[in-house]
Each structure stands twice: as C-alpha cells, then as structure tokens.
Design a protein around this nucleic acid. Structure first.
Lengths: 212, 212
DNA sequence: CCCAATACTTGTCAGTTGAAAAATAAACCT
DNA sequence: AGGTTTATTTTTCAACTGACAAGTATTGGG
C-alpha cells in the first residue's frame, strides 16, 4: 500500500495526551467507518465523535485513507495477536475440542468487536484497494489456518466433506451476523444481542450445530 | 413511513420508455445503496450509473429517501412473493426435506440478489428509520415463519434445541456471507463466488452441515 | 395538427466534503 | 527564561452534495 508514515518524528517527545487524542480519533474512526463505510463517514463527523476539530484529524493522519488504515491496524493487530496465542495454546488439543473452542472464541470476538466484521463487509464486496489491504495483510494467513483446521475436522469425520471455502464463509457468517445486526435483532425480538447471556448462548448454538 | 406517492397521475398515460428509465434508476440505486450505504451513495452517481441526469432522479422520486424506499420495495417485493409461493408449495412436505429445500432456496436467492443482504447489513446495525421500514414491512413476517419451521425441525430432532433467534441469524449468515464478500473471496482463493457451480456447492454445504 | 401532459436537461442554491494553510497554544529541552 | 518542536484551532478553498426551479423535448389524445 502506498501509505506513508504518520508524523512521528520522535516518539519519545510525543506527549501522552497527544497519543490519547490519537487513540480517541482512531476509535471514533472505527465506529464511523464501520457504520457508514469509507465514503459515508466524514472526517468532521469522526472529529466531532472524538471531541476534536477536523483539522486535527488531518494533522495526525494526513489523509482519510491513512486514517482508515490506522484504524484498521489498531483493530486487526490485537486480534491477530490474540488469535495466534489461542492457536498456540490449542495446538495439542484434540480436533473436536479445538474446533469447539475456536468457534466459541470467534463468536465472542465477533460480539466484542462488531466493527471488525462490519468494516470487512463494507469493503469485501468490491475490488477496492482497502479490501486488498485487509485481505493481504490480515486475512490470507488466517484463511490458511482455517483450512488446516477444517481439513482435520473433515478427516476426523466431524464435518461432512466439502471445499473449505464454503465452510470458511459459513462459519464467519454464522458466528458474526447476529452481532452486525443488533438493532434489527432488537427490533425483531426485543432481545439485546450484545448481552453476555446472548453472546454465550450464540456461541453454544453455533458450536452445537456445527459439531455433533 | 411518511413517504408520499411518486408522480403517477395516470399510469396509462405513462410511456413505456419512462417506466424503463425508472427501472434503470432503481437498479442503479440498488447497486449504489447496497455498496456504499445510504449516505455514501449520491444521487448524481446513481443517475450516472443509470445513464441519466441527476435532475431526473429528483423528478421520478422527489427525495433520496423516497428513492431508497422504492429501490428496497422493488427488491423485497418479488422476493416475498416468491417465498410465499415456495412456502405454499412445500406446505405438505416432511420437515426434513422442507428445511433442506428452504435452505437451498435461501442460498440461491442470496447469490442471485446480493444487494438484498448488503442493503440489510448497511441498515441493520443502527436504529435508523430505514432499518425500521425493512424490518416492519418485510422481515417481521418472515422471522415468524422461520421460527415455525425451526420449531418443527427441533421437535423432529433435526436440530439441537436452542432459541430460534440464534438459528435465524446463523442461517442468514451462513447462507449469505459468501455472496456479500465476492471480491474478498476471489482475492483469497481465486474462485468466482457467483459461478453457478459455486452457488450450488454452497447450497449443498450449508444444507449438509445443518441437516445431518 | 395541435396542445396539454409527461419526460427529461440544465442551471442554481445553500450546505457539506477533504485537504491545506495560517494562526495560536502547549510542551519540552537547555 | 527562552526558544523550538509538537499539538491544536480556525480559516480557507475547490469540489461535491440533495433539492429545486426553469427551462426544453417528447409524447399521446383530441
């Protein structure tokens, strides 16, 4: 990606307050981009959400594209780290239990970070440079990993044989859709999709449906 | 919804060409709204996509909100009709076969009309009047219907017991996610998610996973 | 053939957009 | 304390936004 470094001439000199401001802008950007898409969100709206002026957004991130990338990194970075830790911890566990725990992990993550799935859905439908960035930087490795787990699960007779690509999107959709449609869910059933009880019940339902 | 009638003083006088233009604008609007969201899509962009001037959009639909509603209606209307026909045709079929055929129907529909799921995802995350319109007008009935089918399936031992709301969003996500992420899928695997073979394989995978 | 209704184009409006420049404030080092 | 970087606000600008008004073209019914 042709995205330059942000104005970080000397990190040690950067005041703590400034970094916090940056962080607040990133969180606001995440919310705005995931809800309204890249074009739909405005830098002024993001700045207002963070309680800052629009000029400050330009100061910290130069361009909207840059802001988007920084926001995505701040979201996916910790996720990948956590996922890798989980992978390592589950390396020796039998495939049935491993698959179940991974599914539960994915459901919880989708619930706790709905912006991640929303952000991906906003871009995944068309061939934008932003979609390429996410896919190249974060998704490709995880898809490979998922394929490995799926192969094991199919070999063990846990899942009916089918090309991995189908299971990949089935699982992603099954784990996350509820949490990307929280308002609709509340309107349809009156339930709060984000309540801890609901999240755990969804994890159970997904795991029990897929692993039998 | 407080949306007035479009300028249809005398349908018989309306030229065929005009109706075709209207239809072209609606299709363009569907594409734009589903890809960019309500705020992200502009009436000029929609007009250009339809090969018409921006003023004509205002002429046919008065406001952007109105255009959005008309586009949604043109998409959901036929879907509901087709679904009702399918329901009727399957009324006497045993629950196992009925569930399978319904799943296949949903996968095919999600593939042939990806804008429908994209449009819903754009709105379902926050409490907009547009989300209410879709939920109230189209979703509520179908959710009730789905609950009935799910209850039967659970009673018959086809599915592990779980609150219907979870299965609803699991099924919606599993059936549609692949087709709302076609570019991402192509980038990850090189496969064309919209190819007939891929659609049928996905329907098979979903049905075989859920019904065992 | 005319003429009124319909269809469509063009121009304009105030308001918003992202980006950049200019002006000011705060923080830090010496 | 003074001076230089860093942080932030305010101002500015061309491009774009949705809606509307004022035209022009096309249509079909008499």
């Amino acid at each position: 990606m042709t995205i330059e470094a942000e104005p970080q001439p000397d990190p040690k000199r950067r005041s703590v307050r400034s970094q916090e401001t940056r962080e607040r802008i990133l969180q606001a950007a995440l919310k705005a981009f995931s809800e309204s898409g890249f074009d739909g969100a405005s830098t002024r709206q993001i700045a207002a959400l963070a309680g800052e002026s629009q000029g400050l957004v330009t100061y910290h991130f130069s361009t909207k594209e840059n802001l988007w990338k920084a926001a995505v990194d701040s979201l996916f970075g910790p996720f990948i780290e956590e996922l890798n830790a989980r992978k390592a911890a589950l390396a020796e566990v039998d495939i049935r239990t491993r698959l179940r725990l991974l599914l539960v992990f994915f459901v919880r993550h989708a619930a706790n970070h709905p912006e991640q799935n929303r952000l991906m859905m906003q871009e995944a439908q068309s061939e934008t440079p932003r979609m390429r960035y996410i896919a190249e930087t974060y998704l490709k490795d995880q898809y490979e990993f998922a394929c490995g787990v799926l192969r094991e699960a199919i070999d063990a007779g846990l899942l009916p044989p089918a090309p991995h690509i189908h299971y990949f999107y089935i699982v992603v959709g099954a784990c996350s859709r509820l949490f990307t449609a929280t308002s609709e869910c509340e309107y349809l059933t009156g339930d709060d999709a984000m309540s801890p009880a609901m999240i755990e019940a969804h994890a159970e339902a997904v795991a029990n449906l897929i692993i039998r």
